[in-house]
Design a protein around this nucleic acid. Structure first.
Length: 812
RNA sequence: GCCGAAGUGGCGGAAUUGGCAGACGCGACGGUCUCAAACACCGUUGGGCGUUAAGCCCGUGCCGGUUCGAGUCCGGCCUUCGGCACCA
């Protein structure tokens, strides 16, 4: 019976052994330095797919690598288990969301076990378990106490057919995905978190090792704008308060020729004249059917309607018309703008389409400002048409105008953020109940902490009543007011699932604590997270929410430090073999279980890591699997077959150097998540050893050290085969508890280096030189070469560029 | 549309700071071992010119620029992907 690599036998055997030994249990009192490696927890959709493997297997490799480097690594897993799909299953198939979710979790746990990932399963958390969401509710109360939670009106997608609120993904081209009814916007009173209070601090990423594109996206998302709010009196009887607008260009105020309100602006109804009412109401209704993305498109025609009302420019007394248009959003700034068509492209387009006046208030060296403008221009020289400000240079214009506005009480300098407060209310069943009670006499009253969790009731019916399903459960909704004891009703909205994932990394450090979300000591020991890996699709929302949560917790002295995740890495998306997102409808889904069955978890892990850089993702095609399998087989042979004939040991030196280069490169590659090149280097060393075994000349000690180094370097990537080979070489269990090999530079010193010789930038020859050769020596040797002479043709070099150990370029 | 990213052989990709384009692997072709085969082994493999060879020319999405030298830097496009606040 030939002794060959058989994943089918060795993988389950080692998983059972690791499990029995508790090799992945993490202790808080371990003396090694702590290292917290976190991978974004999955939603329990029902089946582990290739995408999960692509996210988790490399994370596991990174965690195992740190463990071998001497850290006590916390690498937990759990399930982000509340959310829409469970409720859809309930509506469509009548299954209970809780049962559906728990069934999925059980299945995915089994599948995850096959991966050979070094999770400490005793720390598993499931966000829909009352033991977890009790603390999610606790966080809500803390944020409420702190004044960071409040109620306000906000729009939701409303399907009149289903009588229900829809998620954005349930709206397709403005229609409900279930009933095809046109979706409307409906205003509801909902809960918000004041994330904007932290906007300024959230712009600061100093000290964070995060990918630059993510911080850029977050900065743009927060969208800080400096400018001013200006107050324009409204020329309508009964409207005494002025119309407040935010502008980044207060210096163009003399060029404001009309005002634009968002159609949802609260003043619209009060200022609209009788003649314009029908048009305005029609436009407001039409706007409720347009998505925000469409509204912000700069290509789209700028529609709008005149309200019939006028405002007074506080600077020059000009009486200017007030319009409504959907390119102004009620959620940004004050929901109203002063339009300066001469100096703003959107305002210009609007003015052109609706025949409104254009008054330039800056001159320009290349534009005739007395002629009708062809387009808006944003950079000008000095102010014109601006009364006392005429001649003020552009650089001084904004402070001058703001100072004047403040003196005249017509406005103030202001900073606005694009970031909006976080809407956390969901009109759904499958989420954590918001722990609040509405009492007629006391108003909104928090549920006392001692009464948490507010349990989600079971046996709920999902009927299209226009209410959240929780509203219908009288025995749950009706409750005594904690404050006065009178009859009161529970809040029937549930929490956004982003809230569950905003603090889960904190719960992992102390997951079974019944008294607190976690103890202060464990938090100090483990937090913040050292390495967070997950999809770039979370670059903005989840990662901003969790930063906000952390900062709020810090201000409440629950955690220490300013940031929750020190280092962040975003892996790319794995696609189907056709380059499209894997989906059942496309028929391009690759099922991991089948591949694991056929090739083993190690091979599948390695193939996923080998296909390309982790942050790039890309198409996954199992057709590349034979290359990985061949490598593992070759590794098996090298490690299990007898050593080569030592001969005179002449090849030892090169094997030592090759091994050391591999140590250096693989260490750097795993550190930088370049698993693809790490595996390429391991393949090269494996091949080099296999060839050396054939040709001989390697002494026994060198051979053993090289083979065992190769196994150690492979261990984080292919944990099962490494363990098996380590045991077969009679090394002490476990390979995963061994120290990572140290690179020794003195063993790789080269006697000569190859220098490329170019003539006019084209490679014409190569030279072998000592590494410390100087330019003169290199030049002399190069010019002596016949091939170089042929290209130089006796001409005198005009210039010679020498890069030591690399290249010599002769320019003639 | 806005914000962010990516385009290199038949395919996945490599080239970490501007310095030999195509490492490593798949596939293909040729061969070895074998009764036969394999997840075994060896070799060739960007395109063109060249009988072989030496060698030469072209070549990193497109157009232009900077440089002794550009896959890499700059400007302008094209295409694909992620996010856009109720999918998670």
């Amino acid at each position: 019976m030939p002794d060959r690599y058989d994943h089918y036998v060795i993988e389950p055997r080692w998983r059972r052994r690791w499990d029995a030994d508790g090799i992945d249990r993490v202790r808080d009192d371990d003396e090694r330095p702590p290292y917290y490696a976190l991978t974004m927890f999955p939603y329990p959709s029902g089946e582990l797919h290739t995408g999960h493997w692509y996210i988790i297997a490399p994370s596991d490799t990174a965690a195992r690598f740190r463990r071998m480097q001497g850290y006590n690594v916390l690498f937990p897993i759990g399930f982000d288990a509340f959310g829409l799909p469970a409720e859809n299953a309930a509506i469509e198939r009548g299954v209970d969301p809780g049962e559906w979710t728990h069934g999925n979790i059980e299945r995915m746990r089994q599948q995850l076990r096959l991966m050979g990932a070094s999770f400490d399963w005793e720390r598993e958390i499931v966000t829909c378990d009352p033991d977890y969401y009790r603390w999610t509710q606790w966080w809500f109360l803390k944020l409420y106490e702190r004044g960071l939670a409040y109620r306000a009106g906000a729009a939701a997608n409303w399907c009149p057919g289903c009588q229900t609120v829809l998620a954005n993904e349930q709206v397709l081209d403005g229609l409900c995905e279930r009933s095809d009814d046109p979706v409307e916007r409906r205003f509801l009173t909902q809960w918000f978190f004041r994330i904007t209070e932290y906007a300024e601090e959230l712009l600061d990423f100093s000290g964070l090792d995060w990918p630059e594109p993510v911080t850029t996206m977050q900065r743009n998302w927060i969208g800080r704008s400096e400018g001013a709010t200006l107050r324009f009196p409204v020329d309508v009887e009964g409207v005494d308060e002025p119309l407040s607008v935010f502008t980044t260009r207060p210096d163009t105020v003399y060029g404001a020729t009309f005002m634009v309100l968002a159609p949802e602006h609260q003043l619209v109804e009060r200022i609209t004249t009788d003649e314009q009412r029908e048009a305005v109401e029609g436009y407001v209704a039409a706007t409720s059917r347009v998505t925000e993305i469409e509204r912000l498109s700069t290509e789209r025609e700028k529609t709008g309607v005149f309200t019939g009302a006028y405002a007074i420019n506080p600077f020059n007394g000009a009486r200017i018309p007030i319009w409504i248009a959907d390119y102004v959003l009620v959620t940004y700034g004050t929901g109203a703008i002063m339009a300066v068509p001469a100096h703003d492209e959107r305002d210009f387009a609007f003015a052109r389409d609706h025949g409104l006046e254009v008054i330039p208030v800056f001159d320009h060296p290349e534009i005739d400002v007395d002629a009708p403008l062809e387009a808006a221009f944003t950079e000008g020289g000095a102010m014109i048409n601006s009364g006392p400000f005429d001649g003020t240079p552009a650089g001084e214009a904004i402070p001058a105008v703001v100072a004047h506005a403040e003196a005249e009480r017509a406005g103030t300098g202001a900073v606005t953020y694009r970031l909006r407060d976080w809407l956390i209310s969901r009109q759904r069943y499958w989420g954590s109940p918001i722990p609040m009670i509405h009492c007629e006499s006391c108003g909104v009253v928090p549920v006392p902490e001692s009464e948490l969790p507010v349990l989600l009731p079971e046996n709920v019916h999902f009927e299209p009543t226009g209410q959240s399903p929780l509203t219908l459960i009288e025995e749950w909704v009706n409750v005594d007011c904690p404050s006065c004891g009178g009859a009161a009703r529970r809040e029937t909205d549930t929490l956004d699932t982003f809230m569950c994932s905003s603090w889960y990394q904190m719960r992992y450090v102390d997951p079974h604590n019944p008294e607190r979300p976690f103890s202060a000591e464990t938090a100090r020991h483990w937090l913040p997270v050292d390495l967070y890996t997950g999809g770039a699709e979370h670059a903005v929302m989840h990662l901003l929410y969790t930063r906000f949560f952390w900062k709020a917790a810090r201000d409440m002295e629950i955690v220490e430090g300013d940031e929750p995740m020190k280092r962040l890495f975003n892996q790319g998306d794995i696609l189907g073999p056709d380059g499209n997102r894997m989906s059942k409808s496309r028929g391009n889904v690759v099922a991991p279980d089948d591949l694991v069955e056929q090739y083993g978890a190690d091979a599948f892990r390695c193939q996923l890591m080998f296909i390309g850089p982790w942050d790039q993702g890309g198409p996954y095609n199992p057709s590349g699997m034979p290359g990985i399998v061949r490598w593992l087989n070759r590794l098996w042979s090298v490690a299990t077959e007898p050593p080569p004939d030592p001969g005179d040991g002449a090849a030892s030196r090169e094997i030592v150097a090759a091994t050391q280069r591999t140590v250096r490169d693989v260490t750097g590659d795993i550190e930088g998540f370049r698993f693809n090149t790490a595996i390429a280097r391991l393949m090269e060393l494996t091949t080099a050893l296999a060839r050396a075994r054939e040709s001989g000349g390697v002494d026994g000690a060198t051979w053993d050290r090289s083979v065992e180094t190769l196994i150690l370097l492979t261990a984080p990537l292919a944990p099962h085969i490494a363990e098996e080979l380590w045991e077969r070489r009679d090394r002490p269990y476990s390979v995963h508890q061994q120290a990572w090999p140290e690179f020794d530079e003195s063993l790789v010193v080269e006697e000569t280096v190859q220098i490329v010789v170019q003539v006019n930038g084209k490679v014409r020859d190569r030279l072998s030189l000592p590494p410390d050769a100087g330019e003169d020596e290199a030049r002399e040797r190069a010019l002596a070469s016949e091939r170089v002479q042929g290209w130089v043709e006796g001409k005198e070099p005009r210039r010679v560029i020498y890069v030591p150990s690399k290249l010599l370029n002769i320019v003639v």
